Simulated assay, not measured.
Amino acid sequence: MQTLSGFTTHALSSSLAHRRARIGAVLALCASSVLLAGCSPAISLQQADPRQAQVALSPCDQAWTAAHRDESPSADPLYTRSAGSRILLPLSQARHWQDVALHCPTRFEEAVTRSALAWHVAYQQSLATPQAAIAVTSPADMTIKAQQTLGQAAKLLAPAQLELATRAEDKAGFSTTLLAARSDSDGSALLKIGDRHHAAAQQLASAIPGSDPRKAVYSAQPLLDHPVTMRDPANGVEAPTAAVVEANCSRFLLEAFQGFARNTTKSHKSASQQGKDGSTSKSAPAQTVRQEQLSALTTFSALATAHLYTALEQGYPANDDLLLAPAGSSQE
């Protein structure tokens, strides 16, 4: 019995040792695999699918991606803890949404609206934290800058687009001037805004080949009845009257400029496709025309953004759905 017991013990010990050796070998193999995997280069999508190397993001895709990339850190309290970040982040958003307005015609209205919202946030943060010493363009300065190139840009608009934009600016100038005369507190500021509207209307009207669409005098009764706050006819929200005037002016401008934005992008795609096909090379005149169109679209989007930015500073609710409401049907 003792001999059998010794033999059994020896067999069990040998079996256990053999199993341990096998487990050790497996673990060593796994460890070496992990080390080799950690040292080996990552396989890119282009290596897995070589066709991906041929894919390039369009200007619209690039602008859209950059605009949405800014949204992630804005939700991070650690990132927005410093005063500088709270200003720089919305500034970056504003500029990226401006790029979307230039390169994504189907997103033109949304891009202008989101850019104005971001400018408003950045401006308010700069006023609240002057120690950050980061300058943010004011609505007035943005409007003035856009008007510096408006006269030249207006020459590229179709007559119907010009007439709609001209009436929008002229009516806003009339309404704001009327409100300035009845204001007890900010009449001077409103009068300056009204002057800028009239100046823009003059620049736009000068490019119209036909008769001047400006009426000079428009229906004043809604303003006389509600000089402080009124319901926005576009969405029914109650807001400061001057802000409603600015918001609706911007909406009519967006309506006027939307067609130009689509045509500009369409012509660029057509020219680019011809160059890829090898049938026609991009000539210097074509590039010049494209640059003029982009420059004009930059001016138009900046002007519409500036008016919406002004409305937000005057107290219009900072809500995407309200701001994106279509313009009313009347400019009387």
Rank of each mutant, 00 (worst) to 15 (best):
V136G: 01
V136L: 06
V136H: 07
T137C: 03
T137A: 08
T137D: 05
T137H: 01
T137F: 00
S138F: 02
S138T: 13
S138M: 04
S138K: 08
S138E: 03
S138L: 05
A140T: 11
A140V: 10
A140K: 11
A140S: 12
A140Y: 03
A140P: 00
D141A: 15
D141W: 02
M142L: 14
M142H: 10
M142I: 03
T143M: 12
T143H: 05
T143C: 13
T143V: 13
I144F: 00
I144S: 13
K145H: 11
A146S: 15
A146D: 09
A146M: 05
A146T: 15
A146C: 11
Q147N: 14
Q147K: 07
Q147S: 12
Q147D: 14
Q148F: 00
Q148D: 12
L150Q: 02
G151R: 10
G151L: 08
G151F: 01
Q152E: 14
Q152W: 03
A153Y: 09
A153E: 10
A154Q: 07
A154E: 09
K155G: 07
K155Q: 15
L156C: 00
L156F: 05
L156D: 02
L156R: 11
A158S: 11
P159Y: 03
P159R: 04
P159E: 06
P159N: 08
Q161C: 01
L162T: 10
E163K: 14
E163W: 02
E163S: 06
E163T: 00
E163Q: 13
L164T: 06
L164G: 00
L164N: 05
L164E: 10
T166F: 11
T166H: 02
T166A: 08
T166V: 05
R167N: 05
A168D: 06
A168V: 02
A168R: 13
A168E: 09
E169K: 10
E169T: 03
D170N: 11
D170E: 09
D170V: 01
D170L: 10
D170K: 10
K171Y: 04
K171T: 00
K171D: 01
A172K: 09
A172R: 09
A172T: 00
A172V: 00
G173F: 05
F174A: 13
F174V: 01
F174P: 14
F174R: 12
S175Y: 11
S175K: 09
T176G: 09
T177D: 15
T177H: 15
T177R: 14
L178F: 02
L178M: 11
L178C: 07
L179Y: 04
L179M: 07
L179D: 09
A180V: 04
A180T: 04
A180R: 10
